[in-house]
Design a protein around this nucleic acid. Structure first.
Lengths: 205, 205
DNA sequence: ATTATTATTTACCAATTGGTAAGTTAAACT
DNA sequence: AGTTTAACTTACCAATTGGTAAATAATAAT
């Protein structure tokens, strides 16, 4: 058991940090600000995470767990070929709508030079490798059209990250109900995936 | 005439600032760093732009001029309806490829909370209004399918901003030649615009 | 009850940062 | 030549920031 923990301070810190990192960005977030909004001292944060970078990594890691769990869920299903991809895409969009902060974090951390990008890469590469491998066997079995798996995956990835921008831009323009544009985006992604992957899909152009 | 100006210091500052803002972000860019990389003192920057925010605004403004000039060029053509839109989209993608820093800046400044977002909005609303108006008359004349112009424009806008992410992600993954994904993106955007706007286009789905 | 461990705080600090104020240099105007 | 003005620098500063060290409180283990 976890000894005692007063009352989940660590989790609370992660919550506030996620919020701030994903909306204001890493640099614009100060430990003091996080601490203040929690009614604790900055040193408490450093006690739990030693450095600011450590805090970001922890935030990223928790978010990634969140994501990976959802992915595993889909992967454990019996779906094959195209249908499996479709299920994955749907899941991602559902998750993105339910927890928009994840998107913001992803965008923040996706910038190559950014502080969290290394950790993100470490967390993502296994997923990427696995997906690539699977796609290759599917292609081998003729259940999937032949293309460069990496390109497809990364393109899909950046579509999802782009969602963050889109939702924010729409909100800034006073369009609160961002559901329709998101649905459009999803349909676009589906179509893109279908065109590049589904062998039973006539590429009419 | 402009008195003398030693040797375009102001422009050089803007160049370096654009580079840094668009790749590292506003917060991660220090005036000292910019100054150092130019071999001048920080106070010279402040002499020309008074505040850091002022510098960002100047960078944004110059970028916007750049963009607006290109837009005017297309708008002065004789193209009507769908063809005009197509020309605009092509121009934007050409510009984005030629000057990728513009994209980075746009993404940096598109975040609602960000320092430059107000200025961006000020610069963009006239364009937006003009585009909306034009689209409405086109719709009235039956040369364009009826939809919400704002939604279409913003969707196109975020597609372009999303390009920044995509190019960066691909580069981070070691894919230098990002031309193909960009081409795909452009085709997608065209298709989206066509489906929502071109009345002569059969919406086969 | 005492001790060990975990959690949190108070007290500091060195570095960085944006910005002010007051020179200094050099060209332009008279 | 002398004055004005634009361009740039040196000298500072106050605030913020991430981080260290040591003290204190709270809980668990003996």
């Amino acid at each position: 058991m976890e000894k005692y923990e007063k009352f989940g301070t660590k989790e609370k810190i992660l919550d506030v940090a996620l919020e701030s990192f994903s909306t204001s960005g890493f640099d614009a977030t100060s430990l003091d600000a996080i601490a203040k909004s929690l009614g604790i001292r900055k040193q408490t944060i450093l006690y739990h995470f030693t450095t600011k970078k450590g805090l970001l990594n922890a935030v990223v890691e928790r978010a990634a767990e969140n994501l990976i769990t959802s992915i595993e869920e889909v992967l454990s299903s019996e779906l094959k070929g195209w249908e499996r991809i479709e299920a994955l895409a749907k899941m991602i969009f559902r998750l993105a709508l339910r927890e928009p902060l994840l998107l913001g974090l992803l965008r923040e951390v996706s910038r190559p030079g950014s502080v969290g990008s290394e950790r993100l890469k470490i967390l993502m590469t296994p997923l990427m490798d696995r997906a690539t491998l699977w796609m290759q066997t599917e292609m081998g079995a003729g259940r999937m059209r032949r293309t460069d798996p990496r390109l497809v995956i990364l393109s899909a990835y950046s579509t999802v990250v782009g969602l963050a921008t889109e939702i924010e831009v729409l909100r800034a323009a006073g369009i609160e109900q961002a559901l329709r544009p998101v649905a459009i985006r999803r349909r676009e992604l589906m179509r893109f995936l279908r065109v590049s992957l589904d062998p039973d899909y006539s590429q009419s152009r």
